[in-house]
């Protein structure tokens, strides 16, 4: 049993790299995902992922399959969309989801346009599905760096971000921290999605952000315990997904996301904080 669970990781270097890489992504992305779900931005992450895709595609046309090119392309496209959308949401009556949808669609259309003008058959397989089982040193460093930067930035922004989520007008009338928190959060979202697409691909990267956060809502109540639970769930999902991928010869990205999905469904059913069983077989009420 022990060999079954840890064997692949002790025997194969690529599995070790995959595990380290995916855990690094979890450390950065899961707390960001927690705040996304709490801000009701779960689906906005999808939009952001689409906004990053054209940047990466254009970079691919210009530089080929270069790590720096793809990363910069994705970052630039994502940050431009995030900044424009954030600015519109803060200075007009449009809400964040609408302004983000508007800009990501423009970005996506531009990307498709550029690619079709070039008439080149772009192999976006890497960007769509990631590369977790073949991480080279440079990519591993990149994932670890983004995870670390993200963690530090999250610690810096934690207070204003929480206040901004609970009561945005309170923060807005006490100084400039409100825009710092807002743009800082969008920045965090973009860098983690870029890390995510190297590991799992643009479409699967959202899974690692949202699913652990959603699952942890059925176990924990306070914000700190929610974040810790969700990161642990993220770790468990990555570990299990990589094992599944190894033994059943599955693509690793989807295997990780499906593992996280299974944890989510189980939490939904047996979670102690409002799961289905908990609702259908409630304990008798207290005396006071």
């Amino acid at each position: 049993m022990d060999a079954l669970l840890s064997g692949p990781f002790s025997e194969y270097a690529f599995m070790q790299r995959a595990l380290v890489g995916s855990l690094a992504v979890c450390v950065g992305a899961v707390p960001v995902g927690m705040f996304m779900t709490l801000r009701r931005m779960s689906l906005t992450g999808d939009a952001m992922a689409h906004a990053i895709l054209p940047g990466a595609a254009i970079a691919y046309l210009l530089t080929g399959l270069s790590l720096i090119g793809l990363t910069l392309g994705g970052l630039v496209a994502g940050l431009v969309v995030a900044a424009l959308a954030g600015w519109v949401a803060r200075s007009t009556h449009l809400k964040e989801d609408t302004s983000l949808a508007a800009f990501y669609l423009i970005s996506l259309a531009l990307g498709v346009l550029v690619i079709s003008l070039k008439r080149s058959n772009v192999d976006l397989f890497h960007v769509l599905f990631g590369n977790i089982l073949a991480l080279d040193n440079a990519t591993l460093w990149l994932l670890a760096s983004i995870g670390s930067v993200s963690l530090v930035l999250m610690a810096l922004l934690y207070r204003p971000l929480v206040i901004e989520c609970v009561d945005p007008s309170f923060l807005r009338c006490s100084g400039h921290a409100s825009s710092t928190a807002h743009y800082g959060f969008l920045f965090l979202m973009v860098i983690n999605l870029v890390a995510g697409f190297h590991a799992l691909g643009t479409l699967m990267a959202i899974g690692i952000m949202i699913l652990p956060a959603a699952a942890s809502r059925f176990w924990a109540k306070t914000l700190d315990s929610l974040i810790i639970t969700s990161v642990l769930i993220g770790f468990a999902g990555c570990y299990t997904g990589l094992l599944l991928s190894f033994y059943f010869d599955l693509p690793a990205g989807p295997a990780i996301v499906i593992s996280l999905g299974v944890v989510y469904v189980i939490s939904l059913i047996i979670g102690l904080n409002g799961g289905f069983l908990n609702q259908y077989y409630p304990k008798r009420h207290l005396t006071g």
Binding site: L156, R159, V162, V166, S174, G175, A177, L223, L226
Partner: peptide
Amino acid sequence: TQLDRCFPITVFELVVTGLWAKLGFF
């Protein structure tokens, strides 16, 4: 209406945000 009542923080944590201007980020 502008306050998100579903956000998972405690009464103490909500009240203590009143000190934000004094305490700042850290």
